[in-house]
């Protein structure tokens, strides 16, 4: 089990590093997708299948594709934006190292009943149907929050459409009422020019 865990978590962290450090933004998005697949595998490994598949469906299927669309829409030079932050780099690495060391110390020195290093008990997947267990809770106790989540998604959809919809000036659109209101006698002039003179 630990071998499988190491395998997936290695590639998950590799994907995360790819997101942060890759030169191309497209490569970063593809690394993000890779990382999400490995995270889903890790969640399925401990018996949370539904969250794992949801991660693939929602993140890979929707969010990452959205990112990919935006990356392809905007032509951005990533290196030009990157070079200006180089002076901060050593501080970023310093604070990241401090944070990791703090967490390691927390894990190493906290007592077993608080989830410390002594609490090495295996993560055992719950018996029975994960989806059924989730549904029994989600649709009863958390039904109001479930509706609220739906409203949040609706709001996000409306918000994104309203934000990106634009009325371009100078575009000729079909106006059916105006078309119907036009009469032939207002706009068409019939002439009968004599031969050899034409219409001025």
């Amino acid at each position: 089990m630990l071998g499988l865990f190491s395998f997936f978590s290695f590639f998950l962290l590799l994907g995360a590093v790819g997101v942060v450090f890759s030169r191309h933004t497209v490569h970063a998005v593809l690394s993000l997708i890779f990382a999400f697949f490995n995270a889903a595998a890790l969640l399925i490994m401990i018996g949370a299948e539904f969250v794992g598949f949801m991660l693939i469906v929602v993140y890979v299927g929707a969010v990452a594709v959205l990112f990919l669309f935006v990356v392809m829409m905007l032509d951005v030079d990533r290196d030009a934006l990157r070079s200006a932050v180089a002076p901060h780099k050593k501080w970023v690495i310093f604070f990241a190292a401090v944070f990791v060391i703090e967490i390691l110390a927390l894990v190493a020195y906290s007592p077993p009943h608080l989830g410390g290093a002594g609490a090495m008990g295996a993560l055992v997947p719950a018996q029975g149907d994960n989806v059924r267990a989730l549904g029994m809770v989600l649709y009863t106790t958390y039904a109001p929050l479930f509706y609220a989540a739906g409203m949040i998604l609706l709001l996000a959809m409306i918000g994104a459409i309203v934000l990106t919809l634009r009325q371009r000036s100078g575009v000729r659109r079909q106006n059916i009422a105006q078309q119907n209101a036009r009469r032939a006698e207002d706009t068409v002039t019939l002439v009968n020019p004599p031969s050899g003179e034409g219409v001025i």
């Binding site: 089990m1 630990l2 071998g3 499988l4 865990f5 190491s6 978590s9 890790l42 490994m45 401990i46 967490i103 390691l104 894990v107 989830g115 290093a117 609490a119 090495m120 008990g121 295996a122 993560l123």
Partner: peptide, 12 residues
């Protein structure tokens, strides 16, 4: 590699 996976691994 056959050791069980604990909460500590996921936490780290």
């Amino acid at each position: 590699f056959l050791q069980p996976v604990g909460i500590v691994h996921y936490f780290l």
